[in-house]
Simulated scan of single mutants.
Amino acid sequence: MPYEQQLASKDARVREQLQGVAPNLEWLTPQASAEANFRNKAKLVVGGRTGLVSLGILDRQRRGIDLTGCELQEQPILAVLPSIAAWINEAGLTPYSVRERQGELKHVLLTVSPAGEFAMRLVLRSEGQLGRIRRALPQLLAAVPGLRVVSVNLQPEHKAVIEGAEETVLTDTRLLPMPLGAVTLQLGPRSFFQTNTQVTRALYARASEWIVDAVPAAMWDLYCGVGGFALHAAAAVLEAGSAAPDIVGVEVSDEAVASARAAAAAAGVDARFVAADAVQMQQLGEQVPDLVLVNPPRRGIGELAQWLEESGAARIVYSSCNPTTLARDIEAMPSMRAVRAQLFDMFPHTEHAEVLVELVRQ
């Protein structure tokens, strides 16, 4: 399907999904993506055999299919994947066989920044080949220019879960800088960041524009991750000549909160980031601000919607990767009126949609 048709179809479908709960929305022109080379991360299954690995996916017989030339990935990723595969072969790392439940190396996870720097994670079944990886690390760093962070993740279980709970960073540096214009975010090995840098920039810019329009004295950024929305909003407010709002970011991941704090310090932004579950925000004793931004996982905000409905917050900016749960959450906040929205095509060539909606109290 031609890309323009894909985007129009996705936009129409999302509008239809929200029509029942937000009938008078002002819909902005959808944010398009590049059609190829838009993914800033590669999540590759290791197949094949020792000395002759494949990086990609597995077929129905659990044999490796090489995807090192897949044009969904950004060009810098495509440029270094052959070197990474060669290094795995030379280091003698043993691919994990799903069919036989033997071997060690399960996945290679690679993220690239706009500056062309990389963070790479190797997912192993056990620590059996960790020493081999440590010894071969200098050769890897020499073979992949810009490789800034290398870590090993242990996933000992035989199930369809990419990573486990234990992470060992092998390099002196554990944070990958993600320069996005006015703000440079910092990604730890387990930090979440959107897959499409170009569209993410546009998403942050639009949310920041709406926040500047609202001139909030205080705002919360719930499910804040590494602080992308909060830090971009703070930078935009200052650029507009307004007083910086009192910003509190809340995220359940300790690593993400540490990354957000590091980025805020580097940017000179006076924002607080708290490691907590967003649904428990009402228990933290914070005064409810006039603006709340939420960027939840696919399940949506759930019970938090009822609390926000009763909280008195004047405005909500909701970034959703699941229009179905977005519609449910809007319906659970009847005193909030959705006034404008925009689709961001974070995931081209799929049915997935990222939607930003602004709601104001009636």
Rank of each mutant, 00 (worst) to 15 (best):
L28I: 05
T173Y: 00
V21K: 04
L343M: 05
Q129W: 03
A263W: 04
S335C: 03
D277G: 05
G181A: 01
M336A: 00
E358V: 15
Q102T: 15
F347Y: 11
L109M: 12
S113E: 03
S335M: 10
V152F: 04
R361K: 08
I133F: 10
I88P: 00
G20S: 15
V21G: 07
D270E: 13
G228S: 08
V144S: 11
A353E: 06
P296Y: 04
V46F: 05
M219C: 10
V357Q: 09
L109D: 04
G131A: 11
N196V: 12
S54R: 06
K106H: 12
Q31H: 07
Q280H: 14
I77S: 06
A85W: 01
G268E: 06
A217D: 15
Q198H: 14
V46C: 01
C70A: 14
A205S: 14
Q75E: 13
W27R: 12
Y223G: 07
A86G: 09
L105Q: 12
R99F: 11
S253D: 08
M336V: 06
L238P: 00
Y318S: 02
E351K: 14
Q139H: 13
Y223I: 09
R49G: 14
K10S: 10
V108F: 09
V317Q: 02
H352R: 05
T50Q: 15
A202P: 06
E351H: 12
I84L: 02
E117T: 15
E310K: 15
R135G: 13
S33R: 07
T94P: 07
Q287H: 10
R60Q: 14
Q5P: 03
L308N: 04
D221T: 11
V294E: 06
R315Y: 03
S54Q: 04
L137T: 09
A260E: 07
A276P: 07
E35P: 12
L176H: 11
R63A: 12
L130Y: 02
Y204H: 13
Q5K: 14
P348Y: 03
G20I: 00
A243N: 11
L187T: 07
G188L: 00
R121T: 15
A32F: 09
E255N: 07
L203N: 06
G228R: 08
G228L: 07
A142C: 07
W307P: 10
T184I: 05
Q6L: 13
Q19P: 12
P245A: 03
S113A: 10
Q198D: 15
A8C: 09
L185R: 03
A218G: 10
R49M: 02
S191H: 04
A278N: 08
S319T: 13
L203S: 11
T168D: 05
L176P: 01
T200E: 14
T111A: 15
A271S: 01
R206S: 08
E358Q: 12
V357S: 06
E4L: 14
P114E: 02
A262R: 05
L137A: 05
E74R: 14
L170C: 11
L147G: 05
V269S: 04
R125I: 10
W27P: 00
D246A: 08
V123A: 02
E354P: 02
L52V: 00
D213C: 09
L25N: 03
